[in-house]
Design a binder for these strands. Structure first.
Lengths: 331, 331
DNA sequence: TGCAGTAGCGCAAACGGTTGCGCAGAGGAG
DNA sequence: CTCCTCTGCGCAACCGTTTGCGCTACTGCA
């Protein structure tokens, strides 16, 4: 059923039908009723492809995960997607998913989407968003580093510092002084920096030899933790950069007969589902990915409504979620 | 850059450009070269909305999660999506995500998608897929029950029986005779039925009083497990319907000072990330959701190529993944 | 009654591609 | 040389909407 056929049935022009459906133009209430009624009767829905062609907008947004394929990303993926999805739906937009970057490029060029949300893992690469925005398609980047000053591209960053600081305060408040850190590969990791800084502000030094460049999977965490715990002057509390590492750390402690949290406090990062299932339930830092997706979407929507805008980077703070893996140190 | 502008630049008609780009029609190799070269130079990409309007197909598929919102579904979600996504991409299709059912309906009616993949949690409701298929849009349903005989709708089911049977065989082979089961709410659950049946075939009875209707979250599992373990004649092995329940069960055992697997064997179901991180790593049944998504997509593609087909339901088997939570019973 | 203003609606041209059909010219056969 | 075939390409219609502009008829006022 096309708008022409429908219009002929009702005895009006396609123009009138279109106007009624959009509430635009001046239509007598009599014909409006007539049209609406018939529309409902036959269940007419405009062909969205024709609409997109004429109007030039698709009301679709692409969500791109540029190679975030590790386990950790999986939970991010689901929450972030949900946040984006819900926010988009509230604004009448649809969500197009894709992975490969060249596919994204084609979609943008072929006008398949109105905007793009880019979730990137590594360091910020301004070229991709700049390219996209230069074609008139706004784009917002979700990542660890802000990206500002490029017209048509927004940015939202995860405020890693906040959670790390909370961890520092919590551990110190508990009475811990010898504190270890299981890191990822990056030496300039924001979490580590913020953690060390906040500890220092509280008068506690993070000893260099208690900072272990862990890795990413539980096995790495177990190895690193074992190394840490075999030391004669072992730490009374350890902050692991990811819950995956913490899972390994937990295992190492158990294998060595060291009880958590009575003999050792442990804090993770990311709040993956494992955290609350662990024994003991793991105190960890939560990254609110739903919020992340929501904020990113809101920025994109505003960019769609006012093109050429140059929005400030927004930040979504991480936060400590306290469970049972932290306690005061034994005397 | 439209096809007309491009054609004028090259000195041919839009028709010729279109034909070159699709490899259709008879074109002299000289002009083909000319066109292709210029296309590459200016980076021309056809407006996909115009294409969709004229051709009548969008090369988009909608993936719908009809209200699957529990934790367990989360991991299903990410794997299933990935399976679908990859398979679609291989065929040159794009993936449109949505949750609400009315939105899906509108997309189908407005010709926004060529096909639909429906992931449903509960009992099969033939109405939705039938409605969708009746508009000429093929549709495949992923669920626990087959759906056959409706033209234009395919179906893929998770073969729950297989994994359950493997569990039965494994436990019996290990020497277990007193076996418990932590179930979900459904009394006619396929896993329970298959498990009981296979045990019986092996000459082992599944005592009714050792079958506990657990629930869904770890707390339920802990309570149910405690109940099971407090019995004087407690089981030597327990099969939990979900890993979430198994997580609670594990906790209950630990609290009661019962060691897994030496004093009690435990098997889960679903292979969520927690399973391999647990202590001990949990033997569980894996649902291959990537495969599930892939198979569903292949069916849909075949349905797109040959409309009106009435494909047989396919089944993706679950399988036991053995880790360290199962051992022979203590004498 | 004449006239301005406005309400209500339709005409037709876009939007940017695809494609059935037809036509010119080249080449081959008779 | 004529006729036929086939190659290579363009014409123009069409896909289903939206929208600027213009037309009619009605209303209110002088």
């Amino acid at each position: 059923m096309t708008i022409k056929e429908l219009a002929r049935e009702i005895g009006v022009s396609p123009t009138t039908v279109s106007r009624v459906m959009h509430g635009r133009g001046r239509i007598s209430s009599a014909t409006r009723q007539k049209v609406l009624e018939r529309v409902r009767e036959v269940g007419y829905t405009p062909n969205v492809n024709a609409q997109r062609l004429t109007v030039g907008r698709t009301h679709l947004v692409a969500l791109d995960f540029g190679g975030w394929h590790d386990f950790l990303a999986d939970m991010f993926f689901v929450e972030l997607t949900r946040g984006v999805q819900d926010a988009l739906e509230a604004h009448g937009y649809g969500l197009l998913l894709n992975e490969a970057n060249d596919v994204l490029r084609r979609w943008v060029k072929s006008r398949a989407v109105d905007g793009v949300i880019l979730a990137v893992g590594g360091p910020p690469d301004a070229r991709v968003p700049r390219d996209i925005a230069s074609t008139g398609t706004p784009c917002v980047v979700i990542g660890h580093h802000p990206l500002e000053g490029i017209p048509g591209v927004g940015s939202v960053v995860v405020g890693l510092r906040n959670g790390a600081q909370e961890v520092a305060r919590k551990l110190v408040a508990c009475g811990h002084r010898r504190i270890g850190f299981l890191g990822n590969q990056e030496p300039q990791d924001a979490v580590l920096l913020a953690f060390r800084e906040e500890l220092k502000a509280l008068g506690v030094a993070l000893c260099a030899e208690l900072v272990i460049p862990g890795g990413r999977n539980p096995a790495d965490g177990e190895r690193a933790m074992r190394e840490l715990l075999m030391r004669p002057d072992r730490p009374t509390a350890v902050f692991a950069r990811t819950d995956a590492l913490a899972a390994g750390a937990l295992r190492a402690a158990r294998r060595l007969g060291i009880s958590v949290p009575t003999e050792l406090s442990l804090v993770g990062h990311d709040d993956v589902p494992f955290a609350e299932l662990a024994e003991p339930p793991l105190t960890t830092v939560r990254v609110n990915c739903i919020e992340l997706g929501k904020v990113a979407t809101e920025i994109l929507i505003s960019l769609l409504q006012q093109p050429g805008l140059c929005p400030a980077a927004q930040v979504v703070q991480t936060a400590l979620v306290e469970r049972e893996s932290v306690a005061p140190p034994k005397q």
